[in-house]
Simulated assay, not measured.
Amino acid sequence: MTTTATTQPGTPVDQPKQDGTLLRVLRRLGFENVSLVLAIVVLSAGIASVNPAFLKLANIAAIGNYVTVMGLLAVIQTVVIIMGGIDISVGSTAGLASVLTGMVFAANGQWWAAMLVPLLVGALCGLFNGLVVVFGRITPLIATLATLASFKGIAQLVSNGRAQGFTGADPVFIFISRGTILFIPTLIWVLIIVAALVHIMLRFSRVGRDIYAVGGNDMAARLSGINVNGRILLVFVLAGVVASIAGILITARTGSGQPVSGSEGLEMLAVTGAALGGAALRGGKGSVISTIFAVILLGVLINGMTLLGINPFWQNIAQGALLIAAVVIQQLSAGGRRVGLPK
């Protein structure tokens, strides 16, 4: 005889557990974004408790201006990493663009020519990187390590290793470096616009979906009809263009083309910002919004260390520690095999 369970009226029936409101909000915002914002708030509060000058509007604007160049490079580095590559030549490309901006402006005094030439050269630098990766069949790390040195050498060669030109008297460059729109510095607006355009491309376009697919599994992407080589070339060209925009901002901010000093170490900051924002170095995962929060965190950290009078050499140590921490967290969360340990 089989007994069947009956449900009496009013008796609760087992139903799937519903997530709490807070958990749903956190998932929508993204745990990485929330954790980065909390880190920014806690770090800012700690620095301000020691040095109240940290919260002055002038210092906050200084942080914003400082993170602009780093943010541009970190945003485009995020795209390259999502694709499954890395471009450590972006700092050298920015330095070359900065030099060309100063030299072209000194030659003809036209701000538009001083911006157009480095943008074209930056696109060519990115295209060269892409061609080396695609047709030379060299990993992006090695290819861009080589061009990091080459582009830096070209910048030093054409400038004789010295700052070039003077843009500090031109109204357009003055507006870029010191102007404001709706009380927000122009430099920050440049970062906002570029980041928004890249975010829209990644999230709402076929090109963006293709980039994620290539980074997730390039062989599967190729079999599904995606032009993998074309997407790789496109991403590296975009990296060169955005790096050139960063170089133009360096020239506007310093008043002259800087072959090395204005761009030294930017590639490290770009990779750190992207990795800290959750861009998976294995490819296929990343977010521009998270990268922006990570860049702000880096800016707050570096600015705070300066205000507190900490030896500048510790900044490099802090950046390296953050990069290691970000990659370790990625590796552990992905369940990947750690080097030197059994599976």
Rank of each mutant, 00 (worst) to 15 (best):
I184L: 04
P185G: 08
T186Q: 11
L187H: 03
I192M: 12
I193N: 02
I193P: 01
V194M: 00
A195L: 10
A195T: 07
A195I: 10
A195K: 07
A196P: 06
H199T: 13
H199R: 15
I200T: 00
M201S: 14
M201I: 14
L202V: 05
L202T: 01
L202A: 06
R203L: 14
S205C: 08
V207I: 13
G208W: 00
G208K: 02
R209W: 10
I211P: 02
I211N: 00
N217V: 04
N217F: 08
N217I: 07
D218E: 13
M219D: 15
A220V: 15
L223M: 11
L223D: 05
S224T: 01
G225V: 02
G225P: 02
I226F: 04
N229E: 11
R231P: 03
I232G: 01
L234A: 04
L234G: 02
V235K: 05
V235W: 03
F236K: 08
F236I: 09
V241P: 07
A243Y: 09
I245E: 03
A246N: 09
A252Q: 08
R253T: 15
R253Y: 11
G255V: 07
S256C: 07
S256G: 10
G257S: 13
G257C: 06
Q258C: 07
Q258A: 12
P259G: 05
P259C: 09
V260C: 08
V260I: 15
S261Y: 09
G262M: 08
G262F: 05
E264H: 09
E264Y: 10
E264D: 15
G265A: 10
L266W: 03
L266I: 03
L269Q: 13
V271K: 01
T272N: 13
A274Q: 02
A275V: 15
A275N: 04
A275H: 05
A275L: 06
L276Y: 13
L276Q: 11
L276P: 12
L276T: 13
G277W: 02
